[in-house]
């Protein structure tokens, strides 16, 4: 049974030309690591936050989001709190912004256990010390008394991870967990996340703009563009043979992890803002293979293809060859 399941999730802000999320369906099984990849503004963060019942103020919401079987859309406060305090936790992008700078690290770590979980200070601290050791911090008792500004970004992100684990969640949502960190610490943080996820058998949803990182750490990948899932498949498949021109473009525009560095090909143009909308494929203006009269008429549905799914009108003609070409 999936620990996290989205069914046709729609989130729209009044006054915007297109919805933030347009029929997003996605699932994460227990113990599975899944990545949601897309550019900034594609709606990936909104998707992740919806799993904790955090939706943009004033948004119109449709569809379903279930965490551990509990429906979150239209849920009462108790259901939402139960999800947030035992089923799912989120690790945010910038730990320096995500931890209150005027309170001690120990306050941040223990407040959930003490104020919601009803544990005593001593119990909460014992639990937190254990977690700080598990995320590889050198001197847990000292860190409890430190303020955030006294720690490095990498250390703080470990604190954030420990904080996400205090309530023993079954699902970890990671929103660009390494983007704000030094390159050297990024690998360490990803390694810690992966190890903890495997050890505890957690479901993991990794939000990232980095397709290579996604492929290196996750089992399956969803690619998102302008609020829609445009391609999904296993990490190996997607990396070896991307079938949506956007996925291929993402791969072609980032340097390869292995092998010779060839010329990078950027995707022309820029992503559609919420103020823009198109009757056809949202990627039409930026696509090498766009066919006027067809691709700009109706949005392509996400249709099964092989083991995965792709949303592209021309996917059959292009097959692998054309999309591969631009790599």
């Amino acid at each position: 049974m999936p620990i996290l399941e989205y069914e046709a999730l729609e989130v729209a802000l009044p006054g915007m030309a297109r919805p933030i999320l347009d029929g997003v369906s996605l699932s994460v099984a227990e113990g599975e690591a899944v990545a949601l990849v897309g550019e900034s503004g594609s709606g990936k963060s909104v998707t992740a936050r919806a799993a904790l019942g955090l939706l943009p103020a004033g948004a119109r919401v449709g569809g379903q989001v279930r965490v551990g079987g509990a429906e979150l859309i239209g849920a009462d406060a108790d259901t939402v709190r139960a999800v947030r305090t035992g089923k799912a936790s989120m690790i945010f992008q910038d730990p320096r912004a995500g931890i209150n700078p005027v309170r001690r690290v120990g306050d941040f770590l223990t407040e959930q256990l003490r104020l919601v979980g009803g544990r005593s200070k001593a119990e909460a601290e014992a639990r937190v010390l254990e977690l700080l050791g598990a995320v590889g911090l050198p001197d847990p008792p000292r860190h409890l008394r430190q303020y955030p500004h006294q720690m490095s970004g990498g250390m703080l992100q470990r604190v954030m991870i420990a904080g996400a684990l205090t309530a023993d969640p079954r699902l970890l949502l990671c929103d660009e967990p390494t983007t704000a960190l030094d390159v050297t610490t990024q690998a360490e943080i990803m390694a810690i996340l992966r190890r903890l996820q495997r050890e505890k058998g957690l479901g993991l949803l990794l939000i990232t703009h980095d397709l290579d990182l996604a492929a290196a750490t996750c089992d399956r990948i969803y690619v998102m563009y302008a609020g829609r899932i445009v391609e999904t498949g296993t990490a190996a498949e997607l990396l070896a043979a991307p079938r949506h021109p956007y996925t291929a473009g993402l791969l072609g525009s980032s340097p390869p992890l292995h092998g010779e560095l060839t010329r990078l090909v950027p995707i022309p143009g820029s992503p559609m803002s919420l103020a823009q909308s198109a009757p056809g494929c949202a990627f039409f203006d930026r696509c090498h293979f766009a066919q006027p009269g067809r691709c700009d008429q109706a949005a392509p549905p996400l249709a099964p293809l092989g083991a995965g799914m792709v949303a592209c009108h021309r996917v059959d003609e292009l097959a692998n060859s054309a999309a591969q070409e631009i790599r």
Binding site: S89, I99, L115, A167
Partner: peptide, 22 residues
Amino acid sequence: RREHVEVALSRGLPRRTVIRRH
């Protein structure tokens, strides 16, 4: 507007507590 406020809410702390503490 601070992100740590959203983080505190995402951890299930009651809104009243978040307002007071953070």
